[in-house]
Amino acid sequence: MNATRRGILTAVPIIGAGVLGVGFWRMLSDMRSGAFDPRAIKNPNVGKPIPSFAMPGLPGLGDGFTDAELKAQHRPVLVNFFASWCIPCVAEMPGLRAISRNMPIWGIAYEDKPENASAFIQRDGSPYARVASDRHGRVAIDWGVTGVPESFLVAPGGRIIWHGSAALDPQIYEAEIRPRLAGL
C-alpha cells in the first residue's frame, strides 16, 4: 500500500510535465499553422449590436455618419478603422478597393488629422462609401478597437457579425466575409 502510494506520488511530476509538454507542442504546431496566436486579442463585441456614436465627416468627403444610419442599412456593411499614419493601412488600400466592388465599406479615420486622412484616402481613389472621423479615438474604444487597421462586418439592423484585425485583402474577403454574407 505504502509503496503503491509512493509510486503514484513519484509519477505525478512526469504526468504533470507530460501534460504541459503536450500543451506546448499543440501550441507550437497551431502557431505554425496560424490557428494559435498568443498575441491575438479577441474582440468581445462580435454578436452584439454596434455602440451608439455620431461622428463628423472628413473635408471634401461628405458628412460622416451615426449608428442610426448604419443600423438603417438594408445591406451588410464592412466598417473599417484606418489612419494615414499606419503603414499596414497603406498596404490595405488596394485590397479594400477590390472588396468595395462587392459590398459597401464605411471608413472611420482613427486618431488622425482630418486633412491628412482625407488626402490619404483620395490619393488613389477612395474605397469607402462613407467616411467619418474619430479624431480622439473615443468611438474606437466603444468598438473595442486596439489599433488600426481593424474591420467589422455589420449586419442589417446593426449587429456585428465578424471582426478582423489584419490588413484586409480579397483572400480574407473570400475566406471569412463572403461565407458570412451568404448566411444573412
Binding site: R6, G7, T10, A11, P13, I14, A17, G18, G21
Partner: peptide, 18 residues
Amino acid sequence: LLAIVIGGSLALFAWRAP
C-alpha cells in the same frame, strides 16, 4: 530537447525514486 532531458529525468525519477 526539453522532452528528452526533462521527460527522461522525470521518468527515471518515477521509476527509481520509490
